[in-house]
C-alpha cells in the first residue's frame, strides 16, 4: 500500500495545552485573521480556526482540500428545524452555512482556491475515510493534499445519542513521497480502541512519538514513524523524551 508522509500540520483546541508546540492553537477564540471580516462574520469558532490553519498550510491556495466532520454544524441545522416547525421562513445565511462543505467553501471564496474540495461525514469513520480519499488523489498524481478533521459538541438535544465530543480541529498536509525529517504514517490492520476517532485523538497522536491511532469501524490503526520534533525546530516535549530514551 502507498505510504503517506506527514509534511506539516496545524491544530486548534482549547482542551489541550502545549505551550512549546507552535502548531497547536489552544486559544478559546481563534482569530480568523486569514479571512476578511465580511466573510469571517459567518464562521463559527471552529470555522475560524480551520480557515486560519488552511491559510498557513496552503499559502499559495492551490491544494486540494478534504474536510471531514462527523456532525457538522448541528446548532445551525437544529435552529433551522425549530424555525420550520414554527412555520417561519428560513434564514438564507443560516442555511448556506449549515451545509457540510460550508467552512471550506468560505475558505475557497476568501483564498481564491478553486481546486477540488470534498466534504466527508462517515459516522465515526472520518479519519479512515480521509486517509483513504487522500491515497486516491495522491495515486492519481497529486503531489500533496490537505485533510481537515473538525468537530464540536452536538446540541444538548442530541447529546444523549452520540459519544461526547470536544471542540477540536486538525489540518494535515500529506504527500506520497518522503522529504527529509517528515514522519511516515504507517497503517496496520486491527480495531484497537472501541471508540471512534475524534479530532482531539488525532491531535494527541500528533503530539506524541510513535503513538497508535485506531479506527474501530475501519478496523485499521495508524502509527507515526519518526519524531514529532524533527518537523519543527522549536517543537515541544519530544526533545526531552528523546534525550531520556536515547532514541535518535
Amino acid at each position: 500500500m502507498m505510504d503517506l508522509y506527514l509534511q506539516d500540520w496545524r491544530a486548534w483546541t482549547p482542551h489541550r495545552d502545549a505551550p512549546s508546540e507552535p502548531r497547536l492553537d489552544s486559544s478559546v477564540k481563534p482569530s480568523g485573521a486569514g479571512v476578511p471580516a465580511m466573510l469571517r462574520r459567518r464562521l463559527n469558532l471552529i470555522g475560524r480556526a480551520i480557515c486560519d490553519m488552511l491559510v498557513t498550510l496552503d499559502p499559495e491556495s492551490n491544494s486540494l482540500l478534504l474536510h471531514a466532520s462527523r456532525h457538522g454544524d448541528g446548532d445551525r441545522t437544529l435552529e433551522m428545524l425549530y424555525t420550520l416547525n414554527e412555520g417561519d421562513p428560513l434564514s438564507p445565511a443560516r442555511f448556506g452555512l449549515s451545509v457540510h462543505n460550508a467552512i471550506i467553501g468560505v475558505h475557497s471564496i476568501a483564498s481564491g482556491n478553486r481546486r477540488s474540495q470534498q466534504a466527508i461525514a462517515a459516522s465515526g469513520g472520518e479519519w479512515a475515510a480521509l486517509l483513504m480519499e487522500s491515497r486516491g488523489y495522491l495515486a492519481d498524481g497529486e503531489r500533496e493534499i490537505i485533510v481537515v478533521f473538525g468537530d464540536q459538541p452536538v446540541p444538548a438535544r442530541f447529546a444523549d445519542y452520540v459519544p461526547s465530543t470536544q471542540s477540536a480541529a486538525v489540518a494535515l498536509r500529506l504527500s506520497a513521497h518522503p522529504t527529509p525529517g517528515v514522519r511516515r504514517i504507517v497503517e496496520h490492520p486491527g480495531a484497537g480502541a472501541p471508540e471512534p476517532v475524534q479530532p482531539l485523538d488525532v491531535i494527541d497522536w500528533l503530539l506524541q512519538d510513535e503513538a497508535l491511532l485506531a479506527c474501530p469501524i475501519a478496523r485499521r490503526q495508524w502509527q507515526l514513524e519518526g519524531e514529532s520534533s524533527l518537523q519543527a525546530s522549536n517543537a515541544c516535549k519530544t526533545g526531552a523524551r528523546r534525550a531520556e530514551s536515547g532514541h535518535n
Binding site: M38, P89, S91, P92, A93, G96
Partner: peptide, 11 residues
C-alpha cells in the same frame, strides 16, 4: 454586502 445578505435583508 453580498447576495446572501440580499436574501437575508429581504427576510
Amino acid at each position: 454586502l453580498d447576495s446572501i445578505d440580499a436574501l437575508e435583508l429581504g427576510l
